[in-house]
């Protein structure tokens, strides 16, 4: 009997996941619909606050929409693929993670496949649609670099959030009840990136925008696309650096994950 390829195995696990999640149909339809509504609500919240003062951080509606939509598209895409890897702590507690390590496939790949949540498809589609709309209405002098950048940037943003999800899940190797700490940076990061970074103040702004790199998800890319200067005074060439920052984040997350897996000692019982 020929051994099935890796891709075939992943496809099978994914298909089984999707089938099992769609079993309770009414519940699944509800979930799909409500998760789209939640995403729409995040954008609506930005605009409810926008309407109070007629601007956010000195930016007009089109720039704010571009940032919020870019953040939503990035986060929703990451959430779809990696959003449930934080279930790792449940797997560790129950000792199920050992069985993933025994199989001849990447542990992270398997974890992604078994925690895949189909209901988030709706959110990702909605996010990417909104981003397309935002690009169309935004005031952009289109040229080849900008076009390429506009295509790449939601995916580098998604990869950035994926790195956070993986890093957050990895903490569970040492600290099982850590779920909420990771939320501060994943969901917190989504909220942070939905608004222009210059709205925040003090050390908090510097830490999140530059130190942790959240400014490179939506704020700096939106400035790069619209060709606007940064009110915070960050030089223009840095606005284009999102892919590099994401690459660094991915490397760090990968190293951290490997370190975590190597130090995993099972539950012991």
């Amino acid at each position: 009997m020929a051994e099935p390829g890796r891709l075939t195995i992943y496809t099978r696990v994914l298909r089984a996941q999707i089938r099992s999640q769609a079993q309770y149909r009414l519940s699944f339809a509800f979930e799909l619909f409500a998760s789209m509504l939640t995403n729409a609500l995040d954008i609506a919240t930005v605009f409810v606050l926008f309407s109070v003062g007629g601007g956010l951080g000195g930016f007009g509606a089109r720039e704010v929409l571009l940032m919020a939509a870019l953040s939503a598209a990035s986060f929703a895409t990451a959430d779809l693929t990696m959003g449930n890897v934080d279930n790792l702590r449940v797997y560790i507690r129950r000792g199920v993670f050992d069985s993933l390590l025994l199989r001849p496939l990447s542990a992270l790949g398997q974890l992604m496949a078994v925690t895949f949540a189909l209901r988030r498809v709706g959110r990702a589609v909605l996010g990417l649609t909104l981003y397309t709309v935002a690009l169309c209405v935004a005031d952009i002098d289109w040229d080849i670099p900008r076009l390429l950048f506009a295509i790449v940037v939601p995916f580098t943003g998604a990869a950035f959030f994926c790195s956070l999800f993986v890093a957050g899940a990895t903490v569970a190797f040492w600290w099982i009840e850590s779920g909420e700490v990771a939320n501060a940076f994943t969901y917190g990061g989504r909220d942070f990136t939905s608004y222009p970074s210059n709205m925040y103040g003090g050390w908090f702004r510097d830490l999140f925008t530059l130190g942790l790199g959240f400014g490179f998800v939506a704020y700096f890319p939106a400035l790069a696309l619209t060709g606007q200067p940064d009110p915070l005074g960050v030089p223009g060439w840095l606005h284009w650096c999102s892919p590099l920052v994401t690459l660094a984040a991915m490397c760090l997350a990968a190293v951290f994950w490997r370190f975590g897996v190597r130090h995993y000692r099972s539950t012991g019982s």
Partner: peptide
Amino acid sequence: YILLSVAAT
């Protein structure tokens, strides 16, 4: 910070 910034605007 978001709400204070909105209030300032």
